[in-house]
């Protein structure tokens, strides 16, 4: 039961972190937003002249990497307060890239105020949430990336141990993803020592696990008694190394690395819990003798993997 309470606390801490972080994240989102795949909404902050806004030539829109290729604006609509404008396009926009809207000689109440630039891209928060969802379900490390199987099969016999392992793993995963990211960005890449990344990442994980082990033993012996066993096992879980490697490979930033680590951890915990629930029932089932134990666990995992295939292509934003 104490484990559950601990899980609740951990969840609250994460939620709090996200809430604190969200204004920082939101600020970078820019002053324009996609409305549909053929519309962009920009806000001027002051009422602008309708005759100016209706002239599509005053707007030039392009994708950030291709400043020379303009996207043709079909029409512009102002809202009743004349503060926000919706640009409509003939062709559908590429929502995964960043667009720049240049408004030439913005005119308000007959006065020309000069040009303004708007940066439009999918909100950082949406991107991060998408990444979290992807790491948790769509690209679930156990069922679609087939990683962390040793621990997955070894520790998923009972629900209680599965939950304990899931929580411990998520915590270690998030923190080591951040540490590895910092090391990779500020030390390895800065000094052109990319080729040392395998040794450095595994070293980081090992040292970190050892440190948590020592600290927990001193600070909270009760929690240590509950989770200590799993700590040692974590170093042999492929996911703990795969996440920093993938972060480095995909050039994720600090927030993205953190969220990717969190998603991987939670995804692993979900997989463990699902599997443990089935295996507790399997104990009572009449399984053919040769299939007892691991073979049937594999077949069950295969069924889960098939089910998780249904998540692919899932997108909320």
């Amino acid at each position: 039961m104490n484990i559950c309470r601990f899980a609740m606390k951990a969840a609250w801490v994460f939620l709090l972190l996200l809430v604190i972080a969200s204004p920082v994240i939101a600020e970078t989102a820019g002053s324009g937003a996609f409305k549909k795949d053929k519309e962009i909404e920009i806000s001027f902050g002051i009422p602008v002249d309708e005759s100016w806004a209706k002239n599509t030539n005053n707007f030039s829109v392009f994708e950030k990497p291709d400043p020379d290729i303009k996207v043709a604006v079909e029409s512009v609509e102002l809202d009743s307060r004349r503060v926000t404008a919706v640009l409509k396009f003939k062709e559908s926009l590429n929502l995964s890239s960043e667009y720049v809207v240049e408004a030439k000689d913005v005119s308000s109440e007959g006065k020309v105020l000069g040009s303004r630039e708007f940066f439009v891209k999918k909100g950082q928060f949406q991107i991060l949430f998408g990444l979290l969802l992807a790491a948790m379900l769509i690209e679930n490390f156990v069922f679609t990336k087939y990683l962390g199987l040793c621990i997955f099969f070894g520790v998923s016999q009972k629900k209680e141990t599965a939950v304990g392992m899931g929580i411990t793993f998520t915590l270690v995963m998030v923190l080591s993803a951040i540490i590895s990211w910092a090391l990779y960005t500020y030390v390895l890449r800065a000094l052109h020592l990319d080729f040392l990344k395998i040794i450095v990442f595994i070293g980081t994980v090992a040292i970190f696990v050892q440190a948590v082990d020592t600290i927990l033993r001193k600070v909270n012996p009760y929690l240590f008694k509950k989770l200590g066993v799993y700590l040692v096992l974590i170093t042999t879980n492929c996911i703990i190394l795969a996440v920093p490697l993938l972060n480095a490979d995909r050039n994720y930033g600090a927030f993205e690395s953190l969220i990717f680590g969190l998603g991987a951890g939670v995804g692993f915990a979900i997989a463990m819990f699902l599997m443990a629930s089935v295996r507790e029932k399997l104990e009572l089932a009449r399984v053919p003798a040769t299939f007892k134990g691991l073979p049937i666990a594999f077949v069950v995992t295969g069924l889960f993997a098939l089910a998780f295939l249904g998540f692919s292509g899932l997108s909320i934003f």
């Binding site: 040769t290 073979p295 666990a297 594999f298 295969g302 295939l309």
Partner: peptide, 30 residues
Amino acid sequence: LPAGGFFVIGFVMATFNWIEYKITGKIPAS
């Protein structure tokens, strides 16, 4: 698909167990 990998390993493991059962008469604790 990934699911196939799990199925195949499960069945191959079971086959190994079955062969051992035929030879030694015991189901190994896998």
